[in-house]
Design a protein around this nucleic acid. Structure first.
Lengths: 110, 110
DNA sequence: TAAATATATGAGCATATGTTCATATATTGA
DNA sequence: TCAATATATGAACATATGCTCATATATTTA
């Protein structure tokens, strides 16, 4: 039925976390820790959207969306394609989107 | 060799996120967005530890660890067992621990 | 019951974060 | 080139966050 996601145990590579790994991991989760960013990423799951599209659909200010997209773009979680003066944003990190989807599924079904 | 973790696509149940789901998801990721909490949870992957154990092993203040454990306990990510005056903390949410492990694996191997 | 040990808690502080407002920049078409 | 449209940016502000210090609480043992 295809709403399955992985429940298999994950083995731990290293118990010690080096500084860089710690930073990357915390930054990744920080990106997913804000409701506005979650809503943006969740919408981008369903395709491309311009900044104004996102702002309208999510009822947010244009500036708010733009700031958050800059944040997400900096972490390479989203990318954009230009068409005239319009920028169409889309997801750019399957792994992180998968983490988000897992958390959403888990939250909904519990 | 067992350091595999899931890479399968996850399907999306709903494009609209209700307030509660949004809150739960953001809180979950917020818990994982701080280096100190990541280090604590990562250590708890390998078993039980008292507050002082955690503080020593991670070179943190006792109060810092206690405050963070309260945070994690409130979200039911950890639980504890009492033995005299000592409280032994351990993980209490396989799903969230799995999210953390996936992110760590991904960060290390990229 | 008092001392020792382990942990929890609250206040205070510095820093981080997210939004808003105003404005700058960039692209297109007349 | 100028106006229109879309987006980006920076400053300012309120709030959230995480750590430290001092102290409170709880359990055990003498």
């Amino acid at each position: 039925m295809s709403m399955d996601f992985e429940k298999k145990e994950v083995s731990v590579t290293s118990s010690r976390l080096d500084e860089e790994t710690l930073f990357v991991v915390s930054q990744t989760f920080k990106a997913l820790s804000d409701p506005t960013r979650i809503r943006i990423l969740n919408l981008l799951c369903s395709g491309e959207y311009s900044v104004n599209d996102l702002a309208e659909k999510l009822n947010l200010g244009q500036s708010t969306v733009s700031h958050q997209l800059r944040f997400l773009k900096q972490l390479r979680l989203v990318k954009y394609r230009r068409a005239g003066t319009t920028l169409y944003y889309s997801e750019d990190d399957n792994h992180v989107m998968n983490l988000l989807k897992q958390a959403i599924e888990h939250a909904i079904h519990h």
